[in-house]
């Protein structure tokens, strides 16, 4: 179902009104993580435009976005896609979900990964 209400809820979190996106795909063309994504970044934005947020929330893409800002740096319409990705993650996390269980992280990751990775990861995933 197409819903503008869903789009507005995300806007409150992200500060990004995605209506200006004209689907040129430059974000996807330059995304370093695109190969692993089930939906390309511009497709996530399209779903948000349509208010079909459920499908966007179910996508792997929102967890694969590394917030590297390559997309927003080049976006001709000034859309901060990483903010939109974060608003989708946060929508799930604020409901009490978590994408990553710190207890289940592999021992070698816990032992070797820099603190920065753990803090950043836990902030984005829990």
């Amino acid at each position: 179902m197409v819903s503008s209400e869903n789009r507005r809820k995300l806007l409150d979190i992200s500060g990004e009104d995605v209506t200006s996106c004209y689907q040129c795909g430059k974000c996807s063309a330059g995304c370093a993580m695109a190969a692993m994504m089930d939906l390309l970044p511009h497709q996530v934005i399209r779903l948000v435009q349509l208010g079909q947020v459920e499908e966007a929330l179910a996508s792997r893409t929102i967890w694969l976005c590394a917030s590297c800002l390559a997309c927003s740096a080049r976006c001709p319409r000034g859309v901060s896609l990483p903010n939109v990705m974060e608003s989708l993650r946060v929508t799930l996390l604020r409901l009490g979900g978590r994408h990553l269980d710190p207890v289940r992280l592999p021992a070698d990751v816990l032992e070797n990964a820099p603190e920065q990775a753990l803090v950043a990861g836990l902030r984005k995933y829990t």
Binding site: A66, A113, K124
Partner: peptide, 9 residues
């Protein structure tokens, strides 16, 4: 990008 915190996946 190197993948950043997605390394925890």
């Amino acid at each position: 990008c190197c993948g950043s915190y997605v390394a925890l996946e």
